[in-house]
Design a protein around this nucleic acid. Sequence first.
DNA 1: TACCATTTAGGAATAAATACTAAATACTAT
DNA 2: ATAGTATTTAGTATTTATTCCTAAATGGTA
Lengths: 142, 142
Amino acid sequence: MSEIAEFLTDCKKMGIKITPQRLAIYKILAAKAKHPTINELYEEIKKDYPSLSLNTIYKTIQLFIELGIVSQFTSREGVIRYEAKLLPHHHVLCLKCRKIHDVFDSSLDELKISPPLKNEFEIIRHDVIFYGYCSECKQEGR
Amino acid sequence: MSEIAEFLTDCKKMGIKITPQRLAIYKILAAKAKHPTINELYEEIKKDYPSLSLNTIYKTIQLFIELGIVSQFTSREGVIRYEAKLLPHHHVLCLKCRKIHDVFDSSLDELKISPPLKNEFEIIRHDVIFYGYCSECKQEGR
DNA sequence: TACCATTTAGGAATAAATACTAAATACTAT
DNA sequence: ATAGTATTTAGTATTTATTCCTAAATGGTA
């Protein structure tokens, strides 16, 4: 659980308080292969913290994004999803079941940036999003 | 204006009616370098069609997406933007001024799909989104 | 030109996100 | 350990975004 330890030191460094709510939210966001929406977060955390307010989730997410430890991620469908920034990776979205999976392929991390783009922009990073059908959905036809 | 002519034949082929509202919306979406949000569309079209309803924009956009002539596009910020599907291209978002520009670089259209990804998914297409600073913003510092 | 199914405008209804405030809590220095 | 203080939370109210509904208007067809 070194991610959690890292989170705790991050919080101290940034001067924000460590609360059970924040820890619970971060833990879910840091869990691999999860890309919850606000409501999915809410439903999941309510199991352990029945009194938790949606408002707290909104504010915590916003705080995490400002601190740079969480990123927003939005699929073509316009559904906003969140995840902790851990290893660099990309995504693949199943066009049928809508599940989003992580893609770890470091060759995608070093795309060739064409000269016109390089001239006009200072590129910091990039995301690749694949669209297709996952193993379950491609079997059962579309 | 061949895009507009193409739009008109598309509509006929699909059996939907060509209305001034639909044409106005499509024209803005087809204008290069524009990636409007719902509200930006609304504000812009209201200049010419003061009576146009927000409702109409929502429904028209949804129709266009179903017809496959418009695509949604959502940046890390979670703001949904729309554009007509013309040539295949990718995007670059300025982290300061938030403007989104098109990137035409066909080498990005043929990414190498790693074996694990290929085995588990049937990949149909992909998007690349670059993040960085545009020529104006990188000069004036951040 | 008249007909009819489709489309629009506008308001009502619903859903999503944010603002506000009193009560509760994490951290600091003692 | 304890008290003090600024931060944070929960809960409600408010605002904003999106969808639903219906009568009136309009585009395409014969």
